[in-house]
Amino acid sequence: MVPVDDTALAVTDTGGSGIPVVYLNGQFATQGYWRRVIAELGTGCRHITYDERARGKSERSADYSFAGAVRDVDTVLAARGVDRPLVVGWSYGAYVAAHWASRNPDRTLGAVLVDGAYPYDWLDEAMEQRIRTLFRRLNWFMPLLRPTGLTPRMTAEQQADSNIELGVISREHELAPVLDDITVPVRYVVASGTSFGSRGDEQERIRTSLAGVIARNPHVQMTAKVPSSHGAILKKASPAIAAAVREVVALDPPT
């Protein structure tokens, strides 16, 4: 358990002398989601996973902001004595990874962004109401699942607020400059199916925004688009994600 602010984060570190890879979870996911990706990469990397605040085995907090999530990356790295990791983020974690890599080019080997960090204006008043309604409905079931660690120890309102904040961070004028400023290798692995709560082709329209990023920033490329939904991509496309990690690592061979 790594203390930070008013809470403590559950961290797992395999140790070893391999390239340190830090995995950043989906918004309400846990570090266990990365098992297949870690198995694909094997012992050649040092794998560091952790549960975000109030997720998994980590403790509750008064701060579930995106800014806090980005700061927590520094806390985990300092606690484990890690310099210059490769950051791998899925969904919400892709946004965290993109921001951290953009702010810390001298401390970052590179980033792999898994079906997230797309600069697209998907949040409006109707979507905000839809999000709040969805989490109010889910609140009937979430207390039953919390003892299993499958749902966060957050209220429905806190989860909705977090999702709405992500919508603000995703806006083109907010996220595009972050991605454009990245100067380390970035590889995207993109899903092709829907995500939880999406309708029709909403998710595919969001993904189209990646083309502009790639056109503007030569450091950013797409390694693969895979036949998977957003939620199943870590399970179904673990070989593609591992290949993206190896691709970034190969760009910075040891001296």
Rank of each mutant, 00 (worst) to 15 (best):
M1Y: 02
P3R: 14
P3Y: 11
T7H: 10
A8T: 06
A8S: 12
A10G: 12
D13K: 01
D13N: 02
T14A: 02
G15R: 03
G16R: 00
S17A: 11
G18D: 06
P20C: 06
P20R: 02
P20T: 06
F28C: 14
F28L: 15
T30E: 06
W34Q: 00
W34I: 03
V37R: 00
G42T: 01
R46K: 02
H47N: 03
H47G: 01
D51Q: 07
A54K: 05
G56F: 07
K57L: 14
K57H: 13
E59D: 14
E59Y: 10
A67E: 14
L77Q: 06
A78E: 11
A79W: 04
A79F: 06
D83G: 08
P85V: 03
L86K: 00
S91W: 05
Y92P: 13
G93K: 05
A94M: 01
Y95N: 12
A97S: 09
A98M: 01
H99K: 08
R103V: 13
P105F: 08
P105D: 06
L113N: 00
Y118C: 02
D121V: 05
D121C: 02
W122E: 05
L123H: 09
R130F: 12
R130I: 07
L134N: 09
L138D: 01
F141I: 07
F141M: 09
M142V: 13
L145F: 12
G149A: 04
G149E: 02
P152R: 04
P152Q: 11
P152A: 07
R153C: 11
A156V: 01
A156T: 01
N163H: 15
I164V: 10
S170Y: 02
S170C: 12
R171G: 14
R171L: 07
E172L: 07
L175Q: 11
P177L: 11
D180T: 10
I182F: 11
I182S: 05
V184T: 05
P185Q: 04
V186S: 00
A191C: 12
S195F: 15
R199I: 15
G200C: 09
D201T: 10
D201K: 08
Q203N: 06
R205W: 08
T208Q: 13
S209T: 07
L210K: 05
L210I: 13
V213R: 08
I214M: 15
I214L: 15
N217T: 01
N217R: 01
P218S: 13
H219D: 11
H219Y: 14
Q221H: 14
T223N: 15
K225L: 14
P227I: 10
S229I: 11
H230I: 03
K235G: 15
K235H: 15
A242N: 04
A243V: 11
A244K: 09
V245Y: 04
E247Q: 08
V248Y: 03
V249T: 03
A250V: 08
L251K: 07
L251V: 03
D252P: 12
D252S: 13
D252N: 12
P254S: 10
T255D: 15
